[in-house]
Structure formats: structure tokens, C-alpha cells
Design a protein around this nucleic acid. Sequence first.
DNA 1: GTCTATAAGTGGATAGAC
DNA 2: GTCTATCCACTTATAGAC
Lengths: 208, 208
Amino acid sequence: MRSSAVPNPPASRPSDDGRRNALVLVAAQLFREQGYERTTVRELAAAVGLQSGSLFHHFRNKEQILLAVMANGIQSVIDEGEALLHAERDPARALEGLFRLHMNSLIHGVGGNAMHAIIFDWRSLSDAGKCRIRELGDAYEAIWHRAITAAVDAGLVAGDPVLIRKYVLGGMNHMVRWYKPGGRVHSDIFIDEMLKVAFPELVPVERN
Amino acid sequence: MRSSAVPNPPASRPSDDGRRNALVLVAAQLFREQGYERTTVRELAAAVGLQSGSLFHHFRNKEQILLAVMANGIQSVIDEGEALLHAERDPARALEGLFRLHMNSLIHGVGGNAMHAIIFDWRSLSDAGKCRIRELGDAYEAIWHRAITAAVDAGLVAGDPVLIRKYVLGGMNHMVRWYKPGGRVHSDIFIDEMLKVAFPELVPVERN
DNA sequence: GTCTATAAGTGGATAGAC
DNA sequence: GTCTATCCACTTATAGAC
């Protein structure tokens, strides 16, 4: 969760940024619901009980909030993904674990709102912002690339690893447009089903 | 291409709407590049050689332009999809054809910009607008549902037809975020490869 | 660190002449 | 059907008091 992705704290006191964190969280939520462009700084400020002017004490400008939302979220899935690949050396289980991790993050975690912002508010970033987030995105895709390549080498799945990666991530990410957690289907079962659709070749590993 | 999706022409003379059509086309392009919210009516007007005020002679407000972009595009893939399913009764070839149709539309056709708008500018629609476009989207998904259900029944693919549909459409649609036509890989070959990734079970039908 | 007040600019949309 | 001119609501961001 906590990581080097948060840029701004100007080397001041260590834990004064409760407001800042709270703001990133509600911003992620509001951006998801309304979009970045349609969310005003007044709304963001009000959502944490501030006046609009006070917001700029915590962030240089509006874009920095969007950047924090995106960077925080993606860094958390990077960290978890790295840990998983380090712990799980079996290609099948690693790929399956990564899939579940990503899906769970999209559905429940902070990562969901962040990923949503990265996908749907990408065009609102400045060039510099795009650049910074793209780096993080590449780092995350590299994790997937390792897992998929290993699976292909082990004969578990077939095809071009790059296309598989893009396609699978696309299929998952797109899900945020329609799947509502808390609906008829529990998310664990839903993820099982999606896994079967995404990697039918992958032998369903036993889960107690 | 031409269809009942265009709402506005107030029963006036038949073919005076060259401007209107041109406007929808460049709007689709601009929306894709910059996003709907970041595209101003002044830009839209300038792109067809008008002043901003003149634009509102053709569209009641800005949202109507977005609606026209979305509706036109999706109606065209609906029409083509219907025609295809009507002509091709073999489940495997029908599914493959639908896949190629959608991919080609995304990459080359008007449908690409329209689909882009539907996906990425969805939150900019009013509730009434969402409702109208959702209906068209449902009609298009119904076409896919027919094709996938037929394929499942024929034992060509396995799994829940609804999930397969959502997942496959997601994987394809997401492609517009990264695939650039005219790059290293020709789009026909690219589509072949994507088809293999999306439906590995589908026996590659001979294409001369 | 938060407030109030406001600057400075931009957006969508309208009115009326031509 | 297009232009010019303009309204006015609203946005991000700043300044300075507390």
C-alpha cells in the first residue's frame, strides 16, 4: 500500500499527511464515478471537509491529485505482484495467482479505482504525467510478461506472449465497466469463472 | 452506414446535412484524441470551418454531437453484424466473421472512433443519453450473444456465454488503447493473431 | 493548515444582423 | 445557414488574514 509512488511530501514531518491520503482515496472514488474532468476541486475539497482553496496546500494543482491516485494504486499491485512471483515458482499457479490478484484489486482494492482512472482518465494527463504513469504501467506489464512467458515455455498456454498479455489485461480491465461487486454472483466465484474463460487451458488447480 | 440512428434532422430537406455529417466525423476523431470534455465547441466548429455559434444551428447542444458520434458508429456495426449472421449459418465461421468485423471496425472504420467514445466518454453522457446508447449497445451485444451461444452449443468453445461475450469484447475493445494501424504489423495479420488468442479452440478456417 | 475573497480565464450557449 | 458579439455560469488557482 505505502510506497515510493507518492511524490509530493516536501521532506516535511513524517505523518502529517492524513488529509492528503484521505483526499487521494475520495478522489479515486469520485473520479471513477464522475470522471476526472467533471469532478471539480470544490467537490474534492468538500468531500474531505475543506474549502477549495485549502486543497492547494496539499497538492500543487489538480493534476497532481490524479497522478497520486494513479500512482498509488498501480504501485500497490506492482508490489503485490512482485511478491507473488517471488513466492510462487510454479508457472501455472503463478499465472493463476496473478490473475486473481489483478481481479481482486480491480473489484475490491484501491487498485480498482486507480486502474479505472488510468484507463478512463488517461487523456487528461499532461505529457509529463503520461510519461510517469506509463513507466509504472510498463513495470506492471513486465510482471505479467514474466508470468505469461513462463507459462508459454511450460506449454500451459499457446500464442504470442505479448498479445496474450494485452488481451488478457484488456479483458480484465474492461470488466470494471460492468461487474458490480455485491451483486448476485460473489466475487470469488466470479473470478473463478473469468479465469476459466481467460485461460481455459490452465488446469484448474485445487483450492480448498 | 446510413441508418435511423441520426435523430436531429427536423424533417427538413433530404440532403442538406453534409455539414452535419462532416461534423460528426471530425468530432469522433477529436473526441478520440482529446476526449469529449477537453474538446471545445470552438474546436469542433473550427474543424469544419465554422464559427462556434453556427454549430448550434446543427446540434441543439454539445451532448447531441457526442450522441450522434456514438449512435452512428454503433448502428453501423449492428447493421453489418446482422447481415453477417444472416448470411453465414456455420457457427465457427459466423463467430470468426463477427470477430474480424469488430476488429476491422475498431481499427479502420467509423466504428472505431465511435466505440472509443462509447467506452471512454461514457461518463459524459446525461442519464437520458446513457439510456439511449445502452439500448444500441444491448442490441449489438445480442448479436454477439447469438453467435457465441451457437458456438457453445456446437461444442466449439466452452464456458458461460455471457462471460465469454463480455471478456472477448473487453479484450478487443481495449486494443484501441495500444494498437496503432500502419505500424510494423499489418492489421489483417494482427487480427489473425488476436483471433487465435481469443478463440484458440476455434479451428482456423481456411482463408485464401 | 484552513479560511475568505477573488482573480483570471474558459466553457457552452444565445441574439440578432446579414 | 453563417457571422459577430456577447452573456453568464463556472473553473482552477492565488493572496492574504487568521
